[in-house]
Amino acid sequence: MTPVIELIICAFLLLGGIFVLLGSFGLLRLPDFYTRLHTPTKATTLGLAGLLIGSMIYFFVAEQRLVVHELLITLFLLITAPVSAHMLAKAALHHKVRALKRTQGQNLFTAARKRQPPPADN
């Protein structure tokens, strides 16, 4: 394995690790549930994609064979991340989880819960 390829693999792995860390950091730090929903769906998915691409390059170079499981896992995560985020948001809305006080547009809450169009004055 040439140093350049090793460097590329390391860069992908590090990028992935940092994004995974950021995702969890946001989960811990952000103030309310709806804002917390943002980081795990985006940052963690991208972080894992970085890890998977890094390991795919490694196995392609080191063992001279194409391991496609990584691609399947990445695709699967990319498809399922928004679905689970949507279901969590829906569950939180129906459980009346309170949003941060300064959240704008809280008058949409009831309408969204009942799946009605937004109130007319909006």
């Binding site: 792995l13 969890s24 989960l27 963690t44 890890l51 391991v67 499981h69």
Partner: peptide, 30 residues
């Protein structure tokens, strides 16, 4: 709240996938 815990669980399993991948990389086994 309960959704918070579910979200944490969701992130937990995704992160553990990353850990398993790294272990596979370390061992050099697919």
């Amino acid at each position: 709240d309960l959704p918070d815990r579910i979200l944490a669980l969701d992130t937990l399993y995704i992160n553990s996938i990353g850990l398993i991948l790294l272990f596979g990389l370390y061992k050099g086994s697919a």
